[in-house]
Design a protein around this nucleic acid. Structure first.
Lengths: 228, 228
DNA sequence: TGAATAGTGTCTTTCAGACAATATGCC
DNA sequence: GGCATATTGTCTGAAAGACACTATTCA
């Protein structure tokens, strides 16, 4: 049936799950419970099966860790170096996922080790080339946040403009002027007021907004923040 | 030795070789000489071997067709659908290459079929999902041309500003104002005058410029043309 | 009424984009 | 001198970015 004579390779998927919690950008890591790199932290992932597409494998492995469906999941890059896995030749297709913190619960370690959200600038030494994969994911995120609306994937359905601004600040590691930020966001015409307000302390409650589109948009205009 | 138990998959590489000739954007295709899709045009490519990285495979297969080294080659995306090859499950890692037309000579069909440069908007029906891969490559190129200097990979070492402008126009399928274009290019500080001139007809000769950097640059500023 | 965050407008500067006349070398 | 392309500058409108005060609710 199969008439090609290509060499065959182990193919895995690795997922950089990104979320925001307590005003910091976090990445999900799992502790490896076996060799190689036993005891080290690594990205969640696993082998691609024969009867699933690579995208399906990514979705399956993401759900195994987080129990959520319907999250933003995008292919990042394929790492195909010969020596990236000491066991032998493994090609990995990396993905990144953006999830609102309140929408997922960590699956309490199916893998004997453990699962933990790490602040992106406090990531320990990792197994394989996973450090490089994370760097690549954050670079892509920081780039894409400027000309698309992916940032909204990290927020709840209803959010205040201050929350939105904090999300951009945390991703880009940069402060913005409140008035300029709000002006820019509102004139993009992608937000609508819900009429509701959020009360969160002894101060004036904030308007809650929602996003007008359920899909991630490419903004043809000048980008959201840093203009490229 | 190899102690993992992942399923194994055929992995190939497909290359979208892009060049500019006679003021049109061209893509290299090869005619398939065997089943499946015998007689149809397809992207050059082939299987990834066990003893080469995926990048190395891409480079090897590119050189097989074009005999040139040292060209711009960038990974595009990995297509991992189950049914994309009728022979069975094949995962392909797509790349695109940018080559100056004068720097490569077509290898006269090693593959019995033939090799031909097609104008991008006159591409025939293709084998596999190669149409989709080309669309993806062109989208990436059009996007990236705006905030990097990849466009220079399509030009000779010394070129006139008119040639540069035509390259942008052909890629983006859009005309630009000559004065604004030159102003923008020159103030990016990435061009230097060579002092030489190109004579190409009964008119005033044009200044030849060269690029100041041998590497592709990311422009932190506002992008070259369409600002995102 | 004090604390804490929400919400709002103006001015300046920079850049994108529209626009046309002169320069140069070849024949 | 005619042809064909090269080269150059100004003006206008839009948007980025700097900047500070008032509003609202709760305790």
């Amino acid at each position: 049936m199969v008439r090609f004579s290509f060499d065959r390779h182990a193919v895995t998927v690795d997922i950089v799950l990104v979320t925001i919690h307590k005003e910091t950008l976090k990445v999900l890591l799992v502790k490896r419970d076996r060799s190689p790199f036993g005891g080290k932290w690594a990205l969640p992932g696993g082998g691609v099966g024969s009867h699933e597409s690579v995208d399906e494998a990514a979705l399956r492995l993401l759900q195994k860790e987080t129990q959520v469906g319907n999250v933003y999941l995008e292919q990042l890059y394929t790492f195909g170096e010969l020596k990236r896995d000491p066991r032998g030749r493994v090609i990995t297709v990396a993905y990144y996922a953006l999830v609102n913190y309140d929408r997922f619960r960590l699956e309490p370690h199916l893998n004997g080790g453990g699962t933990h959200l790490f602040t992106v600038n406090r990531i320990p030494s990792l197994a394989f080339d996973h450090q490089k994969i994370i760097r690549y994911a954050l670079e892509r995120l920081r780039h894409k946040v400027n000309y698309t609306t992916i940032c909204f994937q990290l927020l709840p359905d209803k959010f205040t403009l201050s929350e939105l601004q904090k999300a951009y600040e945390v991703i880009l590691n940069q402060k913005f002027d409140k008035r300029n930020f709000r002006k820019k966001m509102l004139q993009l015409n992608i937000l609508k007021r819900t009429g509701e307000k959020r009360i969160s302390g002894p101060q004036r409650p904030a308007e809650l907004y929602s996003f007008t589109e359920s899909k991630v948009l490419k903004l043809q205009e000048r980008g959201i923040l840093i203009p490229f």
